Computed example of a mutant assay.
Amino acid sequence: MLNVSQATEAPVLSFSTERVATTRQLDAWKQVVVDLHGQMCFEGATTNGYRGTLAARRSDAIQLVEFNAAPTASSRSKKQAGSDAICRYELVLVTSGEFELQHCGHRIRLQRGDGALIDMSRPHQMLYGQPLSATLIACDRTLLDAKLPGVTHACGVGFPRDSATLAALLGYADTVRANLDRWQAHEFQCVMAHLVDLAALMLDGQNDLGGAYPATQAALLHRLKQFIHAHLSDDDLTLPHVAAANGISTRYMQKIFQVAGTSPREYLLEARLLLARTLLRQRPLRHSVSSIAYMAGFGSASYFSAAYKRRFGLAARDDAKERCQINSKS
């Protein structure tokens, strides 16, 4: 079903539903997509078959997928996002057609030349009533989080169409895609790293700034986020402490985060939960859930458990058990 090209050190995975019996085409498409992107649900007729092709290549923590798909609807529920081991961002760039994306409280329509960022640890839904072609750039969330702390707040928001950086990103991604099976492994790793850097540059103009956010406030917001991430494991870290350490009042700090579409309290909680989830999945057998909670800066294990289940759709203990099962099978 999957064809692996051995022309380079890092193989390209290619798939076409035309190689599958008509009655099994949609199911086969679902399986390939799930293997690449995590658990999802699909809607579409199976009696008349399903047309879809894709090519994918991965380098370390970065993956590029090019796909052409017939009309359908796909969704990733909160439970699905919480139960598998997918913890990354996916940047979708539309090359032809259009689709509707519902994600992180936003509902947008994307057309050719548009792009959006998806947090795969959160639920989302994609609906396209016509054939769609797109390029997906997926990277482990640690890569973008390190470059742009708080980038998750840009998820589900369409990128400005007049962005010169978006135009550069689209052109560069098109070049990489067109030569997917020609890059040597070290070349592909390098160009994919450049793609992520371009994406970070574009998101830096999109995330938090909104086109009207003063540069001084943007710099202050970035510094505040960096300080929070540097002290996440401190259970005595308080918002007044964060504000005082950066020479501003708590009230002004609230205003800075409010313009970015969140609050200091929400941002701190989200950062700690993501750190806890990373620790939990990296070390499912080495530490108890309570220990993980304290390592992520939570002073109360019960509060952590409730917040974790509310955020990811399953209990932290169950998440650890599922990760152990995945590790034992791999």
Rank of each mutant, 00 (worst) to 15 (best):
L279E: 08
Y128N: 15
A276F: 09
A146P: 00
S300C: 03
E18Q: 11
Q39G: 01
L273F: 03
A245F: 10
P264M: 00
R286Q: 06
L170E: 00
A306S: 11
F298T: 01
L198P: 01
A315G: 00
A55Q: 15
A244P: 14
L170W: 00
K79A: 13
I108G: 06
V242I: 00
E187Y: 03
A164M: 05
I86A: 09
R24F: 02
F99W: 08
L274T: 06
S290R: 13
L170T: 00
T142D: 14
E266R: 12
T152F: 09
V259T: 12
F188Y: 13
L239E: 03
V191I: 08
L136K: 03
V33S: 05
D114S: 14
R265Y: 08
T175E: 08
L101P: 03
E100T: 08
D204F: 00
V94G: 06
G44W: 01
G129C: 08
A185S: 07
F159H: 06
E187H: 04
L93Y: 14
L268K: 10
W29G: 05
R51G: 12
R141H: 07
T216Q: 13
N179F: 05
I62Y: 11
R58H: 07
L201G: 14
A154E: 10
H186L: 10
V20H: 03
E9Q: 02
Q25G: 04
D208W: 09
G52N: 14
L268Y: 09
D197W: 01
L110C: 02
Y50V: 05
D204G: 02
